[in-house]
């Protein structure tokens, strides 16, 4: 409850200071992101990969992206799981602290966008806490909330693929954090123009 009191005189890592300093200005850049995790509990589960794109001026900037596969060796070891698929994967792997550090550098003060974004933000916050940082300061938009607002739905949550079908987004069969982020970005652009968000 009074956590912030504990932290009031805490010395933060440099990259965190740089990150917080960016919030003096407001951003017009959106960062659409998606995470793959080991489960749905932010406290006990960890991030396996992050994929994200920025959206500027109503278009997705493919080049301005962030993609990372995290080496959660500790988690796998602690839980007695095999990590062979991670070892074998050809994608570039980096450790969690390093990944989060570059992710924060990448997002800066942008507005975050995701599908059920609360969970993604929570699990990132948990990781940040392990690194002695504070919580994410970015504004975050949830496309499912936007969808419900647009369609006047109050009682039902929709999965990402359901939303894609509803808004006629071509679904690719590939599944990864980057693909989810891309789909989310397309949905976000549609919802954004329909809701009239500048």
């Amino acid at each position: 409850m009074l956590d912030w009191l504990k932290n009031i005189n805490k010395e933060y890592p440099d990259f965190w200071k740089a990150y917080t300093a960016k919030f003096e200005k407001k951003s017009s850049r959106f960062v659409v992101f998606s995470t793959e995790t080991t489960g749905l509990n932010p406290k006990n589960d960890v991030i396996l990969s992050i994929g994200s794109f920025s959206v500027v001026n109503n278009s997705i900037v493919i080049g301005d992206n962030f993609e990372a596969v995290l080496t959660q060796y500790k988690y796998f070891h602690d839980n007695g799981l095999t990590n062979e698929f991670l070892v074998e994967s050809k994608l570039k792997k980096i450790s969690e602290p390093e990944a989060l550090k570059s992710f924060l550098e990448y997002i800066g003060n942008s507005v975050l966008v995701g599908h059920h974004v609360d969970f993604d933000v929570d699990i990132i916050n948990e990781s940040l806490e392990r690194m002695d940082c504070g919580r994410l300061k970015n504004e975050a938009l949830d496309i499912d909330v936007m969808h419900r607002k647009l369609q006047d739905i109050t009682d039902k949550e929709s999965a990402l693929d359901e939303l894609c079908e509803f808004y006629k987004i071509p679904i690719s069969d590939r599944n990864s954090a980057a693909n989810d982020a891309y789909k989310t970005a397309l949905l976000f652009l549609k919802l954004k123009s329909r809701l009239g968000i500048k």
């Binding site: 109503n58 493919i62 080049g63 397309l186 652009l189 549609k190 123009s193 329909r194």
Partner: peptide
């Protein structure tokens, strides 16, 4: 990687 994706209603 330089492409921008635009969605049109």
């Amino acid at each position: 990687s330089d492409v921008k994706v635009v969605v049109l209603e």
